[in-house]
Design a protein around this nucleic acid. Structure first.
Lengths: 156, 156
DNA sequence: TCCAGATAGTTACATATGAAACCATATTGG
DNA sequence: CCAATATGGTTTCATATGTAACTATCTGGA
């Protein structure tokens, strides 16, 4: 018999990463949904809109997509839902008829201000098993791995 | 105006984890699909079946689910597809009429033996931006974080 | 000016996924 | 022995998601 190559899923980094992420994201998604009626894509849109300065005109859907690592379809759908719930506003661009400025509504801002501390608390709890220096190390490693992957769409 | 709490997605660990994982998993899924006609759930089933010893009777669907962090519905569907493609076999349990033993077919084993080195190469490339000691550190941190999360389904 | 792309965003379609209902078999307490 | 319940596994249904097609607008060059 051929001496088989073996692969232990529990030792396979992409698998471990996937399981961990699904657990965290799933738990967070449940919380967002239960307490704020938000999906993660919706929350991501609100999160980037919450960062724009007071006087600024808002972000286009494309800018939102860029900053959330979502594709434009996901953004379009999340925006439609958030608009229907009056959590964000849409205003025409002065010069470019294709573009709309998106921003949080007053109601959306109120929700944003509730979700942010909540999200930060969840992150803190997630990281609570690590020491401060381990957190920093993990952060750096994530950055390094992400940097290594962005350029290789094909992942030869 | 109230001094708003802020949240920068790019500094939010669950978000960063999610983006990284989606990139890796997406790239791997594309490769498995292109070259072997496998989805990730299907491959996970094959991966755990590939680990059982020669004389062993095979794994039940529930055991497969336990070892792959998939739920029984996902397993059922992956198993159905793999059976149709004759990549795995199903045999009745001697005593328990509900249970079936699953194992790789000869054809499935041949594919398994192709995929394993391929998967290991992808993992190696993914980790190639890290030094050996960084890999070890990352591995340990993943384990610690996973351990911290498993017990908290609720993630208070 | 006007046409050939490029870009913003939405829609449609086909597939994937999760939750819950469901069927069959096993087990357990009376 | 037999109900009540638990377990293994599949199916159903409703929703989520990705790809590709589509509309509308804009830009740049002949």
């Amino acid at each position: 018999m051929p001496s088989k190559a073996q692969l232990d899923l529990d030792a396979f980094t992409p698998y471990r990463l996937s399981v961990l992420t699904n657990r965290v994201s799933g738990a967070i998604a449940r919380h967002y949904s239960d307490r704020f009626g938000l999906t993660i894509p919706q929350w991501r849109v609100m999160a980037v809109l919450g960062q724009i300065k007071a006087g600024a005109p808002g972000l286009s859907a494309r800018e939102v997509a860029d900053r959330t690592a979502m594709d434009k379809v996901q953004v379009s759908r999340a925006v439609a839902t958030l608009l229907a719930a009056r959590r964000i506003t849409r205003a025409a661009h002065a010069r470019d008829g294709r573009v709309a400025h998106l921003a949080l509504s007053a109601q959306g801002l109120a929700i944003y201000n509730q979700v942010v501390p909540f999200a930060l608390a969840l992150e803190k709890q997630f990281l609570s098993v690590l020491t401060a220096s381990e957190c920093k190390a993990f952060d750096a490693l994530l950055a390094k791995l992400s940097g290594g992957i962005t350029d290789m769409t094909s992942f030869t």
